[in-house]
Design a protein around this nucleic acid. Structure first.
Length: 280
DNA sequence: CGGCAAACCTGCGAGC
DNA sequence: TGCTCGCAGGTTTGCC
């Protein structure tokens, strides 16, 4: 799925086209995705004006003029595409279609249906069950080596698993964990607690740098992800290690035949990629 | 509580 | 060409 950079890119696309617009039509084409849609979702959205678009972790927050907030998650394969022409025949996995007063058509398409969409009240957002346990935003000032160290302390699980845990830091997924660990020179196998301190001092800026570069590139397009415009992101061309098993490490000078290049391993049922020479 | 596997669902590429 | 298998950016649940 879309991880933080992809979700952020989608939010920016939505923001540019939706803020200030009124939703004049809400079409719900199935009862729900990972969670059921609220029964009254179309009624609660229709006629509302969008006042802001926000993001928390991988959740998209559409703030409305009546104090309501639509919460969306793209799961693994979710897309939000903005078209300008109403009336196009619905695609195979188009689940929710929003039409604005100036003719934008926002389609929530999700082949695998791991995404979700629900409604909340602005006043209760901070305590919402989907958001309440989330860790710090990695691009916020509160995400410091000290703060990360505190959340890693006492954890015996591998740092790879800890960084995927959204209560440790919010918004990282399988791609950007591998990339960040590479740039910090830390093996995905290291026990999380051992990364507290000096390791966190390298990891925090590495995470920030990777995420910012990915956002600047419009995210990473592997299979499903596209921007709201339908354009692909292009950060995938800049991966140092992700999905590059057997290929040369960008930091090592040596012969791949000799070193084996980038390694892939399975942790917590997900693939990790790393350079054993530069990460320990 | 920690950690791992499986589940949710569909699509795609590889291999036979 | 067509089948089966394995794998995929996430999150939750259930079982040691």
């Amino acid at each position: 799925m879309p991880e933080l950079p992809e979700v952020e890119t989608v939010c920016r696309g939505l923001s540019a086209r939706l803020v200030g617009r009124r939703l004049v039509r809400v079409e719900q084409r199935r009862p729900g995705l990972r969670l059921p849609f609220p029964e009254d979702m179309p009624a609660r959205l229709t006629g509302r004006r969008v006042v802001a678009i926000g993001r928390r972790a991988k959740y998209i927050l559409i703030h409305l003029d009546d104090g309501g907030v639509a919460i969306l998650h793209l799961g693994m394969s979710g897309r939000l595409i903005i078209a300008e022409a109403p009336g196009a025949p619905p695609g195979r996995h188009d689940h929710v279609v929003l039409t604005t007063d100036d003719g934008a058509v926002v389609v929530f398409n999700d082949a695998r249906r791991f995404g979700l969409m629900t409604l909340a009240l602005e006043a209760e957002l901070a305590a919402h069950p989907l958001l309440v346990g989330l860790g710090p935003e990695p691009l916020s000032p509160g995400f410091t080596p000290k703060a990360l160290s505190a959340r890693l302390a006492g954890r015996g699980s591998p740092i790879k698993a800890a960084l995927l845990d959204q209560t440790v830091v919010a918004g990282l997924g399988n791609i950007y964990v591998s990339e960040s660990l590479f740039h910090a020179g830390i093996s995905p196998l290291r026990p999380a607690a051992s990364v507290a301190g000096a390791g966190a001092g390298r990891l925090v800026p590495a995470i920030r740098r990777v995420l910012k570069a990915a956002i600047a590139a419009g995210g990473s397009s592997l299979r499903d992800y596209v921007q709201t415009s339908g354009e692909l992101g292009y950060f995938q061309h800049r991966f140092a290690v992700y999905d590059r098993a057997g290929q040369p490490c960008p930091g090592c000078c040596c012969d791949v035949a000799e070193t084996g290049g980038i390694r892939r391993l399975t942790q917590a049922n997900r693939s990790s990629y790393y350079c054993p020479r530069r990460q320990d």
